[in-house]
Simulated scan of single mutants.
Amino acid sequence: MTDRDADKRLAAVAAVKEVCDDMLVGLGTGSTAAHAIAALADRRLAIEAVATSRASADLARSLGIKVRDFAEVTRIDLAIDGADAIDADLRAVKGAGGAMLREKIVAASADRMIVISDDSKQVERLGGTKLPVEILPFGRAFVTARLSALFQRLVERADYRTDNGNIVIDGHGWDDADPAALADALMAIPGVVGHGLFLNEIDAAYIAGNGIVTRLERGRQAR
């Protein structure tokens, strides 16, 4: 039987080997990112970090990593995060943990963005994965009506707010023939503040399956 959690841990350990002393590192959110935070703490490097969620910040601090307020940061050296799905072109869907807006901001500030996952997250097409959309509560009904034209089914996360105080709606059944066009359409809806499509942000992925880690680099063959 495949041990997905062990594979996530292996991918995390491999990815954090890219971290060096004096780096400012972006920490993602979710169970896979938690493995990266733990693996990073084990290395006991002289680094600082920014976190994409309160949960990740609390975990990092508890393990001895100094966490800075990203509001005072303009760039970071490296961001490490998980993904809900990732294809061969390093396009991904993220946001199961609800932190996709902060994750995208941190990724955009990073000189290099790495995704870590087990191989169950590798997909040929992204459209089979639910796509989280973060919206302002003020525009809930209006935005939901507009989103219904882009998805077959919408599910609002019950009794849930992001760290930004916003609602998350998961869109199911979407056309992945042109993800960039969908991303543009989503952000053209007033009230949408973020979504889980990461199309250009990811530079590399460490993906583990059955105890073997493969590294994918944008524009290069797997290693």
Rank of each mutant, 00 (worst) to 15 (best):
L199Q: 08
V168R: 05
A183Q: 11
L154V: 07
V115A: 10
E124Y: 08
I212Y: 00
R125V: 05
A188T: 04
Y206A: 03
S120N: 11
R146T: 00
P179N: 13
I212N: 06
V213D: 02
D118Y: 07
T144S: 11
V192M: 07
A205F: 02
N166T: 12
A108H: 15
T214G: 02
Q122C: 05
A180I: 10
M187H: 10
R140P: 00
H172R: 09
G171S: 11
I212C: 07
R215K: 14
S117T: 14
D176Y: 12
T162K: 12
M187S: 08
L126I: 13
K121C: 02
V133Q: 11
A149W: 01
P132L: 11
I212E: 09
N200R: 15
L186P: 04
R146E: 11
V133H: 08
P179C: 09
W174F: 11
A158I: 13
Q122G: 00
A110C: 03
R153F: 00
V193A: 05
V193Y: 03
G196L: 05
A208I: 07
Q122Y: 02
Y160M: 09
R153H: 04
P132D: 04
V155I: 14
N164Q: 14
E124M: 10
V123A: 07
F142R: 12
D111C: 08
W174Q: 07
L136N: 06
H172V: 07
G209R: 08
I169M: 04
L131P: 01
V133D: 03
G127W: 11
G165R: 14
I212D: 06
I207G: 01
K130Y: 07
L131R: 08
A158M: 11
A158Y: 11
A185S: 14
P137V: 15
D163A: 09
I212A: 10
E103S: 06
V133I: 15
K130F: 12
A177L: 10
I135M: 08
I167W: 09
A177Q: 15
A149N: 12
A107T: 10
A183H: 10
G173K: 13
G165M: 10
V143K: 05
R157A: 02
S120Y: 03
L216D: 00
Q152D: 07
G191V: 05
E156R: 14
V155Q: 09
V193I: 15
A188W: 04
F198P: 01
I114E: 00
R153K: 11
G165S: 13
F142K: 12
